[in-house]
Nucleic acid binder design. Structure first.
Lengths: 189, 189
DNA sequence: TTCATTGTTTACCTATCAGTACAGAAAGCA
DNA sequence: TGCTTTCTGTACTGATAGGTAAACAATGAA
């Protein structure tokens, strides 16, 4: 047969996209088979734990991506300003100017929050933490840097919500631009 | 029997709460009967259109509340500053410092977005519009007021996401306080 | 006190859900 | 070539989903 020699690594992005579009509850196995081209047999071969294990794997892959592409650069960059700029650019691309939902944020709002509470908490905690480190140079205290980081992460999440609701990607870009420029403006102080 | 002489007005808040907690997809009729104490028969008597009509009614009641409690005061207040302050206070209470989700925002992110797209769009469009009017005094141009309004509404939504994800209501309060104080700080300029 | 209206209970319908069982095909290795 | 491991299709399960039908109880006006 059409034995596609599927590997977990290949189907994870597809899986992630389905969960992003439909949430955890809204993603049925039939949607998954449709999106991945894999039958139930294959899916349960790779993920014996079913839907929940699939979501855990997706969350882990998201975590890995953000850790390497966003969090680590923020923490270790020689120039924090450049790293923060890079973060804004990466985020704009990743979330397709708000047309692509943040799966972790969505999960946190939804019914299945409790099931993945720890992964959700860690994702946002790491983001705030890494960004706060990059912001330390700019702020009087570590606490101020932390609060500023909270504002920016919340601003990004809110920009997704608003841009999706209004169906207006330009709203997303405007909000991110403003946060980014308010940032660089401070260097003149 | 226990004829509770139910009225639509009485069960709408209960309905709203169930939808808020579980989303549209996640809210099953059995959850609804449980939360309202009404059987399917009664529910379909009040809402012949089923779940969808229930959600439409809930959205309409939310719309009404925000229109009278938030949007109109923002637009018509003698003192916009006071009205904006009142908005922050009302929002903090309404969303219980981020422990209570914004149903409209959640819907916008989730699978059932298309079904209620127009109501979702209008809710946020009205919010931004009303807030922009209250902010006009503070900004150079109407466009700047609008952009600032977008930032604040997005900030509120993001604060909900972040506070829920971190399970930390104080994060919500901090972010709102900061936005509110940045606002009043400008009057000194 | 009749009687239509309004509200409620109960039983039932079909579709779909997540998950399981298992036979069997492809692939890798000998 | 054989044989084992890895993968896949099909058929099934029990549970629950949203929704329907209709008999029936409470209510309020005549």
């Amino acid at each position: 047969m059409a034995r596609s020699v599927a590997e977990k690594a290949d189907i994870l992005p597809l899986l992630a996209e389905v969960f992003r579009e439909h949430g955890y509850e809204g993603t049925s196995l039939s949607l998954i088979t449709q999106a991945t081209g894999l039958g139930k047999g294959s899916l349960y071969h790779f993920f014996p734990g079913g839907k929940e294990e699939m979501m855990v794997a997706v969350l882990a892959s998201i975590d890995l991506w953000f850790e390497t592409e966003i969090f680590q650069p923020l923490q270790n960059a020689a120039s924090p300003d450049v790293a923060i700029d890079a973060m804004f650019t990466a985020v704009r691309t990743y979330f397709a100017s708000g047309q692509r939902v943040c799966l972790v944020g969505l999960l946190g709002l939804s019914d299945s929050r409790d099931r993945f509470a720890e992964a959700i908490r860690r994702y946002f905690a790491r983001w705030v933490e890494a960004l706060a480190i990059a912001l330390r140079h700019r702020e009087q205290t570590n606490q101020a840097a932390r609060e500023h980081a909270e504002q920016i992460v919340a601003g990004i999440q809110g920009a997704i919500v608003l841009a999706r609701a209004l169906d207006a990607p330009d709203v997303f870009d405007r909000i991110l631009n403003e946060m980014s420029s308010r940032q660089t403006a401070k260097s003149g102080e």
